[in-house]
Computed example of a mutant assay.
Amino acid sequence: MLPTTSPHSNGDPSPRDAARHTAGAKRYKYLRRLLYFRQMDFEFAIWQMLYLFTSPQRVYRNFHYRKQTKDQWARDDPAFLVLLSIWLCVSTIGFGLVLDMGVMETVKLLLWVVFVDCIGVGLLISTVMFISNKYLLKHPSRNFDVEWGYAFDVHLNAFYPLLVILHFLQLFFINPLPFLTNTVVLLYPFALLGLLYILSISLGWNFTQGLCWFYKYRVK
């Protein structure tokens, strides 16, 4: 995207427009920084990971601040992706140890989790969201569109808490009992819960409100 000129600048681009880059330039800058660890702000990436659990709105306020200062919603630093990949590697190795997997099986699982579950799915989702610029924009404009990189960042932000819960905390609760059989029977009641959920939506029944009323009138 070429910089535009301000009517009051005698043909010179404004500072905001001069700082604006094309999507290709932004992508090249992001990928190039993957090769230079010293240029990555890992401290800030750790801060984002912490607040994705405790105060997610602060992370998204930072995206808004980046849009105002750098004219882009997406991260321009791949430090978050690098740390997330390291987390995936560590958690996958933990899975391999807990489940008594072989070295090659663990490596295959690691490659699958990192490059398919995380990056591959993220690329697919980001591309679908990027296509929305063509079909879903209310008023098409260069200044108001979905950035491909921002869609990818949203995927990473959502993937990280799920990673910690399922790939890290869950490891401490995996306790197989080899002397039991047909343990899948214990999961059957969840099918009933799913049916109740569908019925509550179709009937307009607020289960949470009903539960609150139950506790309130039980003690009266």
Rank of each mutant, 00 (worst) to 15 (best):
V113I: 10
M104D: 06
L123R: 12
M101S: 12
L171V: 02
L163R: 02
L110H: 01
G96T: 07
G149Q: 03
L166H: 13
W148Y: 12
I174C: 00
W87A: 14
W112P: 00
D153Q: 13
F95D: 04
F152C: 05
F152P: 05
V107Q: 02
K108L: 12
E105I: 09
Y160N: 02
K134E: 04
I125C: 05
Y150I: 01
D145V: 04
V114F: 05
F159N: 06
P176M: 05
P176H: 10
L97G: 00
K134G: 04
P140W: 02
V114A: 08
L171W: 08
Y160S: 10
I119W: 10
Y135Q: 01
T106V: 05
F172W: 14
A158I: 15
H155Q: 10
M104L: 13
V154W: 04
S85Y: 09
V164W: 05
H167N: 15
V107P: 10
L123E: 04
F159T: 09
L88H: 08
H167Y: 11
I165S: 04
V128G: 00
L171K: 12
L124F: 12
E147Q: 11
G102M: 04
S126Q: 03
L137I: 01
E105P: 10
L83W: 01
D153H: 10
L110I: 05
H167V: 00
P161C: 07
N133L: 08
R142V: 08
N175I: 02
K134F: 09
L169G: 03
D145E: 14
V113K: 15
I86R: 03
L83H: 14
I86C: 12
S141L: 03
L169F: 15
M129N: 03
N133D: 02
A158H: 07
S141G: 05
V103Q: 08
L97I: 14
V98F: 04
G122Q: 08
L88G: 07
V98L: 12
V98S: 08
W112Y: 14
I131T: 09
T92C: 08
D145Y: 07
S141C: 04
L124D: 00
P140F: 00
F144T: 13
K134D: 04
L111K: 10
C89L: 13
G120K: 08
F172M: 13
G149T: 06
W112F: 14
F173I: 13
W148P: 01
L88K: 06
E105Y: 05
K138V: 15
E105L: 02
L83A: 11
L110M: 15
L136A: 15
L169K: 14
I119H: 11
V128P: 02
S126F: 00
M104Y: 09
C89V: 08
V113P: 01
I125G: 00
V103L: 15
Y160Q: 06
G96Y: 01
K134S: 12
V116I: 11
F168Q: 09
F173Q: 06
P161A: 04
K138Y: 12
F173C: 04
V98H: 06
G122C: 07
K134R: 14
L109Q: 11
L137M: 12
G122E: 03
N143L: 04
S126H: 01
